[in-house]
């Protein structure tokens, strides 16, 4: 599994519950390296064990933790760069939804060996969408819950009012129902193309 995903899990636990909690979870999972590196590969088993460790340590269901990770990815200030990348998907939430199928390809443009699940968007009726998330062999089962968290946070980011529900698994794909009630329900967050991310400045120095 790609280190970026493993590292995300670690950063989420650290940033949300503190470093001590992370160390405890890593110990519980018998994860000896104690730190995931974003640019290395890890055994799926190792990442699964850490996630199991988090379930026990936090006393929260796996699905809830996964969804929280999705929200964290978009809303935490440490991930501003990622939020910006997601906002490139479109000028409003509907356009963003329509760009979701491109997401794995876009991710691979940046990190060639990052395998994200295949996404397929269908629309039932105006404003009602169904997103099928087909995780490959190398993806974490339950990725759909992460996606629910991401979508919920992105809806907030665009200022859209949406209803999301994870409908379980159909033919090996996780199914997410998305109902867009209103696209400009609230003031969204800014997305300024010109706001050069801090990352770029650091990398240049």
């Amino acid at each position: 599994m790609h280190g970026l995903i493993a590292r995300t899990l670690q950063c989420f636990l650290q940033d949300t519950y503190g470093y001590a909690a992370w160390q405890d979870i890593a110990r519980r999972a018998r994860f000896e390296a104690a730190e995931f590196e974003a640019m290395l590969d890890y055994d799926m088993v190792t990442v699964e064990q850490v996630l199991d460790g988090a379930v026990v340590h936090l006393g929260k269901p796996r699905e809830v933790i996964l969804e929280d990770i999705g929200t964290y990815l978009i809303t935490h200030s440490n991930n501003e760069g990622l939020r910006r990348l997601m906002r490139y998907g479109g000028v409003d939430f509907i356009e963003f939804l329509h760009s979701l199928e491109d997401l794995p390809g876009r991710a691979q443009l940046a990190v060639a060996d990052l395998d994200l699940p295949v996404l397929e968007l269908g629309d039932d009726s105006p404003g009602a969408f169904v997103l099928a998330c087909q995780a490959g062999q190398r993806s974490l089962p339950g990725f759909g819950y992460v996606l629910v968290g991401v979508l919920r946070a992105m809806a907030d980011d665009y200022g859209a009012l949406v209803i999301l529900d994870h409908r379980g698994i159909l033919e090996e794909a996780e199914i997410i129902g998305i109902t867009v009630v209103e696209t400009d329900f609230a003031e969204g967050r800014d997305f300024d193309l010109a706001a050069a991310p801090a990352l770029r400045r650091e990398a240049a120095s």
Binding site: A38, L85, A110, P197, A203
Partner: peptide, 24 residues
């Protein structure tokens, strides 16, 4: 153009992650 901007940002982020690893 927008895809290019996306790519520049995404690559910078990925590159920075790589550099962080290298420094460590």
């Amino acid at each position: 153009a927008i895809d290019m901007l996306y790519l520049v940002e995404a690559k910078s982020a990925a590159f920075e992650a790589s550099r962080t690893l290298n420094r460590r």
